[in-house]
Design a protein around this nucleic acid. Structure first.
Lengths: 228, 228
DNA sequence: TTCATTTTGTTCTCGCGTTCACAAACTCCT
DNA sequence: AGGAGTTTGTGAACGCGAGAACAAAATGAA
């Protein structure tokens, strides 16, 4: 992340807090949908699956949007968090690599409903071109620069095989994209000022497997011990 | 996590380290594929995208598998990490919810190549039943208990809409699954001893959007100053 | 008005994770 | 054999985040 001087902006929100804001936002949307007008930090924390002290501390970085003795106005807080994250208006997004995962991402309604609009689907394979996925036509990867410039795209999603990911990232960076969400299982090298977040599906399973293995090992040890 | 006495098992690997082991494993596999027999901590760290001091400390939790003055034997270290994670043999996995994302997950080759075998695809919607995805037939969700018992499944993947996720999780826990990978955007409540990891696609984009928004804000300020 | 009650916002402490820095140990060359 | 050069493994310092605890502020009742 770009480490700027803290004096430049009074509100330096910790990264851990930033990562939880979308969770709070989602919980608030759910509460609003249920017609609940206000909530306490305890209620919101439960809905978001966190500690209430942590929630209050996180929200305090944004400002004082609650009322002591009362709680938070759901709609008001929701707007404030959405504004802080920057999803009060839609962000244009391009997805590169329209394989199985790319299809799923293009069809994922959560993007659209949470402030992101897929403006283009790109793939290097000519066999994919012309297909309409979720109302958007798959186009040649070479049109990347043109599309990014036209729609002023800042966020790119990489859903290609690992081998292609770095060259796709280079092209993205080259045409002005400064945020990349990478689903390919590879480490991307990008210049300073470009943010990369990585989602690795099998990595998560491997972490689960580690704990699972320990569970069964400990169980076996305890079984022997108990037999004595 | 079950907090056991540290005397019970000498190797208490920190969670942050566990999360990086799969990254190192992947880097080692790549090196091995390239025919590289040994590597230094510096080289491996670069390949994995981390600091070399952190890498060495992480590996030190597993044991002393390197040689001072030389480095690490790629194949040997790879096996040791794989053994530690528990992916030397395949883990059976069930996927529930065969929509767009479920299809992509079922077809994702990375699972198979990294120690996981999808033994069943389940969906509550009868319209999906009978379809063959990646060589596996989609079956009714009601067969969950039967399948889990038959294949001794410990890991379940939830790719349903948010509304169904909690009830799916309850059923999974009920039939003995103790590790859940949740792709639905909802907070799951599970008993102690059950591990849940959550992957939230739009959450990652929202985090990027936050930083992106700050860049453009700061960028506007800096635009006067200097565009280095 | 004044007091009791509720709930936020913030201070403080503790523990974990990251990073630096260096001693230990191994290889290779002379 | 001995010394120079590498590279690992680890002790120590540091900084960040989590959680407890409390003061400040708002409401409502007497």
């Amino acid at each position: 992340m770009t480490a700027r001087t803290s004096s430049e902006n009074a509100r330096e929100i910790p990264e851990a807090t930033v990562a939880r804001l979308p969770v709070y936002l989602r919980a608030l949307v759910t509460l609003a949908d249920d017609g609940i007008p206000t909530c306490s930090s305890e209620e919101l924390a439960t809905a978001a699956g966190v500690n209430s002290a942590k929630l209050r501390k996180d929200l305090s970085y944004l400002g004082s949007y609650g009322t002591r003795g009362v709680g938070y106005d759901v709609d008001y807080l929701r707007y404030q968090i959405a504004r802080e994250i920057g999803v009060t208006k839609d962000w244009p997004v391009v997805i590169v690599g329209i394989g199985n995962l790319g299809h799923a991402l293009a069809n994922y309604s959560g993007f659209r409903s949470r402030g992101f609009q897929v403006v283009a689907l790109l793939d290097a394979d000519p066999a994919q071109h012309g297909e309409i996925v979720a109302g958007v036509e798959v186009q040649p990867f070479d049109r990347l620069e043109e599309i990014v410039a036209a729609a002023d795209v800042a966020i790119g999603v990489i859903a290609t095989p690992a081998a292609a990911a770095q060259s796709v990232a280079d092209r993205m960076v080259g045409c002005g994209i400064t945020s990349i969400l990478n689903f390919a299982p590879s480490v991307l090298a990008v210049p300073d000022g470009v943010d990369v977040r990585k989602v690795d599906l099998s990595l998560e399973l491997q972490i689960l497997a580690y704990h699972e293995q320990r569970k069964s090992q400990t169980g076996a040890l305890l079984a022997d011990g108990g037999a004595a």
